[in-house]
Simulated scan of single mutants.
Amino acid sequence: MMGCRVRLATKRDAIALQDIYTHLHPDDPKINEDQFEQELEALLADPDRMIIVAELDGIIVSSCTLFILPNLTRGNRPIALIENVVTHKQYRRTGLGKKVLHDAFDRAEAAGCYKVMLLTGSQTEGTHHFYQEVGLKPDKTGYHKRL
């Protein structure tokens, strides 16, 4: 896609990230910009936590968060967790979500991870198809507890 660039988010992306996240969870409580920026800065201070964004003509339109987690099995190889996969509603089905996920996979592989995990609460068949298209397999059972 012309004018598309995939990169790591920075503190300067705080407002754009707040905007893109409304396309993921529209009913989330609003957080003031200063607080969001502080939390973003703390997250990005750890090199094993990163937000990958796709820009189209300088505007962030897709994003995911990648966590590299230490692990004491599989030869002490780390695992990767992907969260908050979102693409602006106007840019879905354009390949931008795939670009950020493939970048996350590449970063996880470069970090020596032996697997990448992603959970989705979506019951939409298209969402599941999308994740399978990028190479993720629905072969495990996930559990979570909301706190």
Rank of each mutant, 00 (worst) to 15 (best):
P47H: 15
I79W: 04
V85A: 04
G95M: 09
V53R: 00
A80N: 11
M50P: 01
Y114T: 00
P70M: 15
G95T: 13
E55K: 07
E41R: 04
D139K: 05
R93G: 03
Y131S: 10
P26T: 09
N84F: 05
H129R: 12
F36K: 00
D57R: 06
R107L: 08
A16S: 15
Q90E: 15
L72N: 08
K115M: 04
H128Q: 14
K145L: 11
G135L: 08
A104W: 00
K89T: 14
I59P: 02
I59N: 01
P29Q: 09
L66G: 00
G97C: 05
T10C: 14
L40H: 12
R49G: 03
P29N: 05
D57M: 02
L72K: 05
F36V: 01
V6M: 11
Q123W: 11
E39K: 12
D48P: 02
G121M: 03
D139A: 08
K140Q: 09
L43F: 11
K137Y: 07
P47C: 14
D106W: 04
K30F: 06
F36Q: 00
E83R: 02
T94N: 12
Q38Y: 05
G3T: 10
E41Q: 10
L136P: 04
A110K: 14
Q90W: 10
H102V: 04
S63N: 05
L147G: 13
G75M: 09
Q38C: 06
L43E: 04
Q18K: 15
N32T: 10
G126P: 15
F130D: 06
M117H: 03
K98A: 13
F105Q: 03
